[in-house]
Simulated assay, not measured.
Amino acid sequence: MAELLTVENATNLLMLCFLQAVLGFDNLLYISIESQRAPVAHQRAVRFWGIIIAVTLRIVLLFAMVRLLELLEAPFYTFAWEGILTGGVNFATIVYLIGGAFIMYTAVKEIGHMLSIEDPGHDVEAKSGKSAVSVVALIVMMNLIFSFDSVLSAIAITHVFPVLAAAILLSGLAMILLADGVTRFLQKNRMYEVLGLFILLIVGVVLLGEAGQAAVHGAEAIGTSPEEAEALALKLFGYEIVPMSKSTFYFSVVVLVAVEVLQSGYSRKLNAERRALQRHS
């Protein structure tokens, strides 16, 4: 227990909670809209049990993913296209490559969606009088779909399962307590969602970097000599794919947050000056 109480784990937990909150925006919005289709008397219970079941299944998904990464460490294929692509591939390589590409695609898609002028609730049909059970089942199913990117981004930050599970539990508790409030806040303060999406892009890059060394770490774990393991590092056009360091990742996040805070303050100042000029004109 004592080994979990470190500054690194605490920092990772804070970052994971922030990402879970940002990645859960669409989920919160969906839950708040879909729960309104249940009978009015059951809507609060629908939100509560939908989130409880979904968070439980998300932890199961996380545990399964972490265990698979540990069990399927041995490289199963080696590229030998000299000058183009060389290095080994294991299960973790595939997960990181697909996950990194998927997360970056999700972030870019969401940024594009935010730039559109469509109303998030535009496509929501009128209340259909669904039963509470069917609405809960639909919320749980959609939550699992939404959870794929959050689970992959969490694994990119740390492999310490108690930290990962704690972040998911805390985000689930926040969803239960603040579902409606968080949705309204993020709708009014969309810059926080934009910030989170750009952080998500960086997380995608982190995952792609991890893919380059996944076979190396897997080979070392099963007792392969250091020299043979190093030969399994992925190289693209002769350049080795290396993971981003945690210090670089956190520095990038700090810079993004600082830019967002300064830009928000400057925008408020400009708006105040415009209002003052309009009053005096």
Score class of each variant (00 low, 15 high):
Ser150Ile: 07
Gly83Glu: 13
Ser35Pro: 02
Arg47Gly: 04
Tyr239Ile: 15
Leu68Ala: 15
Val95Gln: 02
Leu236Arg: 00
Phe18Leu: 11
Ser150Asp: 08
Gly238Asn: 06
Met65Glu: 09
Ala92Asp: 03
Gly99Phe: 04
Asn189Asp: 04
Ile176Asp: 00
Leu208Tyr: 05
Ala276Arg: 09
Ser116Arg: 03
Phe18Arg: 02
Glu34Lys: 12
Leu69Thr: 07
Leu61Gly: 02
Val206Asp: 04
Gly112His: 10
Ser264Cys: 05
Leu62Ser: 12
Gly218Trp: 11
Ala126Ser: 10
Phe79Asn: 06
Leu236Asn: 01
Glu110Val: 06
Arg268Cys: 12
Ile157Trp: 00
Ile94Phe: 10
Phe198Ser: 09
Gln20Pro: 00
Gly223Asn: 11
Pro226Gly: 08
Leu144Ile: 07
Gly181Cys: 06
Ala165Gln: 01
Ile241Asn: 03
Ala276His: 07
Thr6Tyr: 13
Ile222Met: 14
Gly238Asp: 11
Ser35Val: 09
Val151Glu: 01
Phe198Gly: 05
Gln278Asp: 09
Thr224Val: 15
Gly238Trp: 08
Ile168Ser: 02
Asp26Pro: 06
Gly218Gln: 06
Ala272Glu: 14
Met104Thr: 11
Leu200Met: 07
Phe148Ile: 15
Phe185Tyr: 15
Thr56Lys: 00
Leu232Arg: 03
Ala45Leu: 15
Ser245Asn: 06
Tyr96Glu: 06
Ser32Cys: 10
Gln20Ile: 07
His42Asn: 10
Leu14Cys: 12
Ile168Trp: 05
Ala214Trp: 01
Asp119Leu: 13
Gln278Tyr: 09
Ile51Pro: 02
Gln187Arg: 06
Ala45Phe: 02
Ile33Ala: 10
Glu3Cys: 03
Ala38Val: 01
Thr78Gly: 03
Leu207Tyr: 06
Gly265Asn: 04
Gly181Ile: 07
Met1Gln: 12
Glu70Phe: 06
Arg274Cys: 09
Ser131His: 10
Asn90Ala: 14
Gln36His: 10
His122Phe: 12
Leu71Asp: 05
Gln36Tyr: 08
Phe249Tyr: 14
Gly83Phe: 12
Leu4Glu: 05
Glu3Tyr: 14
Asn9Ser: 13
Gln187His: 11
Val182Thr: 13
Ala167Tyr: 01
Ala132His: 01
Leu97Gln: 04
Arg67Trp: 09
Met104Trp: 06
Phe76Ile: 10
Arg268Pro: 03
Val242Ile: 13
Met114Pro: 03
Arg275Ser: 14
Gly218Pro: 08
Leu72Gln: 10
Leu29Arg: 02
His280Asp: 12
Thr158Ile: 09
Ala54Asp: 07
Ser32Ala: 14
Leu236Val: 14
